[in-house]
Computed example of a mutant assay.
Amino acid sequence: MLKKHIDTYYYIVRLFFILLGVVLASVGLEIFLIPNDIIDGGVVGISIMTSYLTNLPLGLFTFLLNVPFFILGYKQIGKTFAFLSAFSVVALSIGVSILKPIPGITHDILLASVFGGVILGIGVGLIIRNGGSLDGTEMVAIILDKRISFSIGEIVMFFNVFILTSAGFIFGWDRAMYSLITYFIEFKVIDIIVEGVDESKSVMIISDKHKDILSAINARLGRGVTILDGRGGYRGVQTNVLYTVVSRLEVSKLKRIVHDLDEKALVTIGNVEVAGKKYKKRAIH
């Protein structure tokens, strides 16, 4: 019963911070970027351009264009991620619709690019850190990451170069270049909030239930796990240590897996650079 209450509290806190992130993202878009014809990357950027060309509400397109990715994310990544992402996008669609009548607070394009990028980056960072996503291209990148050697960050960058280039034909090349400035600022702020979009993390787990945890990591994350023989330095007791490498987006889920199986498990997480051929995870069917 206690565990159920803790889990409920945990998800309420996550939803709160996701909602806060959505508010900030909405402000960054409608108060700074869109009034100055500056776009974001990903599906939001496509939505901004489509809204401009059709004169239909931005919120409509941010929702409709993400629907296929919700379905894909639910089938390929997991229902929790898909639900939190759907919640984020629906809330963003409502947020930008509410803020639409409010005029932008600056028409200085450089100021709008910088402050819009910072505010949007904080918002998106909070959403990603708490397990959600505003961008269907990120879901595609996570899925493709299981099957090809390119990183999530590289795949997202490929999409965004195409999207920002398209903005040059619609809004003019000066606006496309300002959009690029915004994108890099946003990306850096996200990096500060969530320690990198595609940063690899090394994880060591010490637990008496190491076999169950190993099986769960294989089944639910598709990551390989190495079993190390260890000995306690104080009591000299033999123990098994699990070692694995995951992406930053998987850290939260891994911690929940370990916590659900053994609340007393010791988990250490550190940044790691993966050299050579990129580590691959098997596809989960």
Rank of each mutant, 00 (worst) to 15 (best):
I142D: 13
V13K: 02
A283K: 07
R147H: 12
L92V: 04
V189M: 01
E186G: 03
Q238H: 06
G78I: 04
G21K: 01
N55Y: 09
S252R: 06
H5I: 07
A176I: 10
G132Q: 05
S47M: 07
D212K: 11
L164R: 07
L29A: 04
N36Y: 02
I31E: 07
A167M: 08
I205M: 11
I94V: 07
K79P: 00
L56R: 09
L144I: 12
I38Y: 01
V245E: 10
H107N: 14
K255R: 15
V124F: 13
I155Y: 14
T106E: 13
V156Y: 08
K253V: 12
E30T: 02
L266T: 15
E195C: 08
I155L: 15
L144D: 07
F184T: 06
L214K: 09
G42T: 06
G168Y: 05
L266E: 12
I192E: 03
V194I: 09
R231S: 10
G276I: 12
I94W: 01
H107F: 12
R223A: 06
V90S: 04
I18A: 01
I6V: 03
L56P: 03
A275Q: 15
L15A: 04
P35Y: 02
G104A: 14
I98M: 02
G233S: 11
S202W: 01
S252G: 08
P101F: 05
L2C: 00
Y10N: 03
A91P: 05
L126K: 04
D262Q: 10
Y183N: 04
D108Q: 08
H5M: 09
N130K: 03
I257C: 04
G233M: 10
L33T: 01
A86D: 02
E138M: 11
I94T: 04
N160E: 05
I18V: 03
M157D: 14
T106C: 13
K201W: 09
D135W: 11
D108S: 08
N130V: 01
S200E: 13
I213Y: 00
L33M: 08
R129S: 07
D208H: 07
W173R: 12
L92Q: 03
K79T: 00
S179T: 06
Y183T: 02
S247Q: 12
F162W: 15
G95C: 01
H259G: 10
T8G: 03
G28Q: 04
G233T: 08
I38T: 07
Y11M: 01
Y279P: 12
G232W: 13
K277I: 08
N55M: 10
L15C: 04
L72C: 00
N218A: 06
I6P: 00
L53I: 14
S215Y: 09
A141W: 06
S51E: 04
V124G: 01
R14Q: 05
L64M: 08
V267I: 14
D191I: 05
S252L: 09
T62G: 01
A112M: 11
E263G: 04
L60C: 03
V267P: 08
H259A: 12
F184G: 12
I170K: 03
N160T: 07
H259D: 12
L134Q: 10
I205H: 09
L266M: 15
R231M: 11
T54R: 07
M204W: 10
